[in-house]
Design a binder for these strands. Structure first.
Length: 283
DNA sequence: CGTTACCTGAAA
DNA sequence: TTTCAGGTAACG
């Protein structure tokens, strides 16, 4: 559920609250352990790695949250679809769908809530392999039309699918990719390798802008997302196509269409997004 | 490359 | 009752 802007909002909220805090205990709901551990870090190792450590900082890469630990290791959490990370007074009642908590030394804890149990936790000695697997962050400087062009080169897949591939571009998810494609005037199902230079350039701009706007609005709360204090974001009030099926395009008045691309619900304006048409099958 | 599974609801 | 869900990894 959370994409780059939602994860970044949580990071900014929690960073000052958890930095310098020592972890005094880790509680995990046994039934969700295999998924929580992401089949990467056995649960007892997780507990042993975290208990007693001091959190040195909170970072983010793509949709991953990265807790620096005072032994040089990193606690890596991914919220997937319905994960929430909340900073609460230790006396506060449990969250709905609470699966675990990290008890801090100042009377607060981090509550991990996850209805669908897809979220993952792991502790890594070295995050370089994870970083290298992910594409550039659209809000960083090493992201450019030139980079996108080479990422698209020769790809027959829908441009939406390539933009959602975290190894190509880190941080976009289903909401922001639909919005970025709308802003760029590009059909989601266009084959990536067939896009012209102008379209690629526009996408390089709009993917970045749409994510920055999402951060400004503290994320999009269509369903489950809340920030580190449990508050909703506002970005869902500003979307132009996502889940606006059948409603008029703000630009041209055409009805927003819904299709499926790469197995994901996809929303677009048939008039504003025309480039390029699907290439006709060779005879 | 596209599709399916993972899990549990909420909404249609 | 059925469908759908903001993500990703494992399939074929």
């Amino acid at each position: 559920m959370p994409e780059l802007p939602e994860v970044e909002t949580i990071r900014r909220d929690l960073e000052p609250l958890v930095s310098g805090r020592r972890i005094v205990a880790v509680e995990i709901d046994e039934a969700t352990l295999p998924l929580l551990a992401g089949a990467t870090t056995p649960i007892e190792m997780l507990r042993a790695s975290l208990a007693g450590r001091t959190i040195t900082g909170l970072g983010r890469r793509g949709k991953y949250l990265l807790f620096g630990l005072d032994d040089g290791r990193t606690f890596v959490a991914h919220l997937r679809m319905t994960g929430r990370l909340l900073w609460r007074d230790s006396e506060a009642p449990p969250e709905a769908y609470e699966r675990g908590r990290i008890v801090l030394d100042d009377g607060h804890d981090l509550r991990w809530s996850d209805l669908r149990k897809f979220g993952t936790w792991r502790v890594m000695d070295n995050v370089t392999p994870l970083f290298e697997k992910l594409g550039p962050e659209p809000i960083d400087d090493d992201y450019s039309a030139r980079y996108l062009r080479q990422a698209f080169k020769g790809r027959e897949a829908a441009v939406k699918s390539v933009l959602l591939d975290q190894e190509k571009v880190a941080g976009l998810g289903n909401i922001y990719v639909d919005e970025a494609l709308f802003e760029a005037g590009v059909r989601p199902e266009s084959r990536a390798g067939a896009l012209g230079d102008a379209a690629v350039k526009r996408l390089a701009v709009t993917t970045r802008e749409v994510l920055l706007r999402g951060i400004e609005h503290r994320g999009a709360s269509f369903r489950d997302y809340v920030d580190g204090q449990g508050n909703e974001g506002r970005q869902h009030m500003y979307v132009k196509v996502f889940r606006r099926t059948g409603k008029p395009c703000y630009t041209c008045g055409s009805e927003i269409q819904r299709t499926v691309v790469g197995g994901r619900a996809t929303h677009y304006c048939p008039r504003c997004q025309r480039f390029p048409r699907r290439r006709s099958k060779p005879a």
